[in-house]
Simulated assay, not measured.
Amino acid sequence: MSATLTILADPRPRVLLVDDDPALRMSLEFSLDLEGFEVVAMESGEALLRLGDLPHTGACLVLDQNLPGVTGVETLRQLRSRGVGLPALLITSNPPPAVREAAKRVEARIVEKPLLGDTLTAHITAAIAAE
């Protein structure tokens, strides 16, 4: 079987990860892969919005709030308006009340940075299990 077919047939839960910090993005991609997730990582909300078919189940969106250009909440708002109902986590530090309210409106759970231990993994696992 070719590598492409293996990737396409990957049965692991998928995480669509968006963070503009290359070091953090690569670190999260590596650790989530070790935890058993298939990770699709990108650097911007715009990159996520350009993706064609998003999975309908078995996946979780993980977005940094403070992205350049389109923020995490705005990216989720646009995805929700397109009918994308995947569970979503918004990662950020010290979110102000306005961000907390906006996250609720797009049905995103906030996970505060720093991301210590298995906090993010636990939230992803719970979000996928609850869908």
Score class of each variant (00 low, 15 high):
44 S>P: 09
21 D>V: 03
16 L>H: 11
67 L>N: 02
84 V>D: 03
75 T>Y: 06
12 R>H: 10
101 E>L: 15
82 R>Q: 13
4 T>H: 04
1 M>T: 13
43 E>F: 00
48 L>D: 06
47 A>N: 09
8 L>N: 04
53 D>P: 05
44 S>A: 14
52 G>T: 11
15 V>W: 08
79 L>P: 02
6 T>F: 06
94 N>C: 12
120 L>D: 09
117 G>V: 11
8 L>R: 03
100 R>F: 09
23 A>G: 01
47 A>Q: 15
64 D>F: 02
93 S>W: 02
91 I>Y: 01
39 V>L: 12
100 R>H: 05
2 S>K: 05
113 K>I: 04
110 I>T: 07
131 E>W: 03
61 L>F: 11
16 L>A: 08
124 I>D: 13
45 G>K: 04
66 N>P: 00
18 V>D: 05
109 R>D: 14
107 E>F: 14
120 L>P: 02
10 D>C: 06
93 S>T: 12
83 G>E: 04
46 E>S: 13
2 S>F: 08
102 A>Y: 03
71 T>L: 03
54 L>F: 07
50 R>W: 07
1 M>L: 13
90 L>N: 06
130 A>N: 11
54 L>K: 01
86 L>K: 02
104 K>L: 15
19 D>R: 02
73 V>D: 01
57 T>E: 10
27 S>T: 14
96 P>A: 15
113 K>V: 06
121 T>D: 12
15 V>K: 02
2 S>I: 07
43 E>P: 08
88 A>D: 09
1 M>E: 09
9 A>S: 14
59 A>M: 09
83 G>N: 03
43 E>T: 06
38 E>V: 07
91 I>N: 02
103 A>C: 12
69 G>L: 10
